[in-house]
């Protein structure tokens, strides 16, 4: 927040964008090859991932440097807020797509299938189901075991994160650090339990539409929790290095927003995937 509050910061020319496109090219190409079992596929994919990690590290390092050198004035800060908001909106739409698919299948498609007696003489629409061609019975995932506990964990993690934020607001670094550590721990536990649930599950992605929707939705949510946890870790390190202060800490808030968003998604998951 030092000298240039008047002008909007314009970064110098940078190669990170090009590196980003190389990373995604390798990842996409490698993944395509790997799925079609072209031998070298996995290597290309891994190379891509490595470049990508390097990219994230380097780009964010630059951004943090600039932030610390006070290049970002209030207006830049507002830009960050707008863009993070819109980014989360795009994430909402991403999940909305999968939820939409789930609702469509459950309310329409299954009835139509069981109505198509000429093709499936003895299929009756139920939920959960693994489809008319399924051979063995489907044993679905009940809500009141791990899922309920996980719900609790995520809700608490939301609270601990807010606790950390309050700490930051009144420059209480200790409260901030503790809050963050708790949140990260809860996130990790959630992920562990989720992995455990997958391991125990009596069905897989190819157990018909139930398995498909279940793993697609919980899987992508799990990925988001993972990313959130990693980002929280980074924030924790920055806090320990003394970054952020009461009135200049959007990096923290952005991750917090993200975390709460992931929270809300879970609540929908709990209701529509596990419970109803």
């Amino acid at each position: 927040m030092s000298q240039n509050t008047n002008n909007y910061y314009l970064p110098a020319p940078s190669l990170w964008p090009l590196i980003a496109s190389i990373a995604l090219f390798l990842m996409a190409g490698g993944f395509a090859m790997q799925m079609n079992d072209v031998a070298s596929g996995s290597y290309v994919l891994i190379a891509g991932v490595l470049v990508f990690i390097y990219l994230l590290y380097g780009w964010f390092r630059d951004v943090i440097k600039e932030s610390l050198s006070g290049f970002y004035n209030k207006q830049v800060d507002v830009s960050f807020r707008w863009s993070m908001g819109w980014f989360i909106f795009s994430e909402v739409m991403f999940f909305a797509g999968f939820f939409g698919a789930l609702f469509y299948i459950r309310t329409f498609a299954l009835d139509w299938i069981s109505g198509s007696k000429l093709v499936w003489p003895d299929f009756v629409a139920t939920w959960p189901t693994s489809g008319p061609a399924a051979t063995e019975a489907l044993e679905a995932m009940g809500p009141w075991g791990l899922p309920a506990i996980n719900t609790l964990i995520l809700l608490i993690s939301g609270a601990t994160l807010t606790y950390a934020h309050w700490g930051l607001m009144k420059n209480n670094r200790k409260q901030l650090t503790i809050g963050l550590i708790l949140t990260i721990a809860l996130g990790a536990i959630f992920l562990y339990l989720q992995a455990h649930e997958y391991a125990e599950a009596a069905f897989t992605m190819d157990s018909g539409i139930y398995g498909s929707t279940f793993y697609m939705l919980t899987g992508f949510h799990g990925m988001h929790v993972t990313m959130g946890t990693i980002m929280l870790l980074i924030i924790l390190f920055r806090v320990m290095k003394g970054h952020f202060n009461a009135d200049h800490h959007f990096g923290f808030e952005a991750v917090a927003w993200y975390w709460h968003f992931v929270d809300v998604v879970w609540l929908f998951l709990f209701v529509f995937v596990y419970w109803l």
């Binding site: 799925m35 991403f94 299948i105 061609a133 992605m205 018909g208 539409i209 793993y215 697609m216």
Partner: peptide, 26 residues
């Protein structure tokens, strides 16, 4: 669109049945 493409991809390679009536999809 990204969601749709992802479902297509998993239907192609990871055994899901979003678009396959036999598995309860459409």
């Amino acid at each position: 669109l990204a969601g749709a493409l992802t479902m297509l991809l998993t239907d192609r390679h990871f055994g899901t049945s979003f678009f396959d009536a036999a598995g309860g999809g459409d």
